[in-house]
Every structure is written in C-alpha cells, then in structure tokens.
C-alpha cells in the first residue's frame, strides 16, 4: 500500500542523492585540479561548499520533521536515521574536498615537487569507495557496503606510504617542506574521505539489515 509518507521519504532520498552527486563531483574535481594543475577548477570546488552546506541543513530539517510528525518505526526509522548520518558524512566530505582544493591552489603556484603516483592511486580507490557506498545506499546493497568497509585498509596503507616518501623529501632540503606538507595533507584528507565512505557503508548495512557493524562490533560480540 502506497502511503503519503512514502512520497515524503522519496523527497528526502532525492535531496540526499543530489547532495551525494555534488560531493562526488567536488572530490573528483579537487583531485583533478591538483593533477592537471588547474586553479580555476580548484576555485570552483571551494565555491561549491555553500551549496553542500545549504543542502545539509535542508536534509537535517526535513529528517527532523519526518521524525516528529510521523514517529516512524522499523525500516522507515532506519532510513531516516541513516539519511541523517550520511548527510553529516557527506557534508564533511565536501569540506575535505575544499581542503584538498585549497592545498591544490597553493601547490600550483610552485613548481611540482615530484611526479604524483601514490596520491592519484589513493584518490582512485577513495573515489571508488565513495561511489560504491552511495550505490549501496541507492540499491540497498549491504554486500557492496561491506566490501567498501574492507577497502579502507588499502587507503590507510597508501597514506602511510605517501607520508614516509614525502618525509625523505623534507629531510633532503628545507625548501621542499612546504610542498611536501601540502601533499601530506592532501593524502590525509583523502584518507579521511575514505573513512567517511566507510561510515556511510556501515550506515547502509544498518539501514538494510538492521545490524550494527561499526567498530567491528560483530567480531567483538562473537568473542
């Protein structure tokens, strides 16, 4: 039976997807601006932040309204609470894309320190994680969501690798420090974006199956 409430849930879902595609685009443009050394592109990312912030507020208000007026239960309740958390994660991811774009603007002003290899690789995995976590949400695919969680380690390892490599550049010469720190920060921001993609995936599993998987709680309960 179609309920009036379903229309409102659909509206919330559409807003969230709009925000998701905007944030995905920001992440991708922030990295491209760095790789292609394109300042204009980085500036566009920085400008997009306002739109994401506005959407965050709209989604929050909409979710609170649905909770207060409909007192939802079961999958409706799980959908709305997950939407609120995903909203939060997306907004943070937007901020991190802006942070990357800002680093990119600074880095472009100076000659390239080294050819970028690991960072584009990290960005590729991170973007795939973000994309998959959102696809999992749209398709209610908890298996895909669980796969995203397992990929987080790859990004963490690459981040450490980037850090170690750039450390050697800094030790070689003080002139390298500013650029190396900027690149370390870019890697760090990517790593945080991957963490948010993991959070989204964990929320998707809760939304779809009603089971919590955060903080490896499943394994801990088994012990």
């Amino acid at each position: 039976m179609e309920r009036h409430f379903d229309e409102e849930l659909k509206g919330l879902n559409e807003k969230l997807l709009k925000m998701a595609s905007l944030v995905e685009e920001m992440i991708s443009a922030s990295i491209r601006s760095l790789i292609d050394r394109n300042t204009g592109m980085a500036e566009d990312v920085i400008k997009s932040d306002d739109k994401v912030n506005m959407l965050e507020i709209e989604i929050d208000e909409e979710s609170l309204k649905l909770l207060a007026l409909h007192q939802p239960a079961a999958s409706d309740l799980r959908f709305i609470t997950s939407a609120m958390k995903i909203n939060n994660d997306l907004e943070r991811m937007g901020d991190l894309a802006v942070n990357i774009a800002e680093r990119s603007v600074d880095l472009i002003k100076q000659p390239q320190l080294k050819p970028l290899i690991d960072i584009p690789q990290m960005a590729k995995i991170t973007q795939q994680m973000v994309h998959d976590s959102l696809t999992a949400f749209i398709n209610k695919d908890s298996e895909l969501a669980r796969q995203v969680c397992r990929r987080d380690d790859e990004v963490d390892k690459l981040n450490e690798q980037v850090f170690r490599e750039l450390l050697t550049y800094m030790m070689e010469g003080p002139k390298n420090i500013t650029r190396a720190v900027d690149l370390i920060l870019v890697a760090k921001h990517l790593e945080r974006i991957a963490d948010h993609a993991t959070n989204i995936s964990e929320d998707v599993v809760y939304y779809v199956q009603g089971t919590m998987i955060k903080h490896h709680i499943e394994e801990k309960k088994k012990q």
Partner: peptide, 11 residues
C-alpha cells in the same frame, strides 16, 4: 521489533 523486525508482516 520496532527497529528491525524480522518478519515482513510485522514490518
């Protein structure tokens, strides 16, 4: 039962 019911009919 109210957050994650197992049976579709309960849901």
């Amino acid at each position: 039962i109210f957050t994650a019911p197992a049976d579709k009919r309960t849901e």
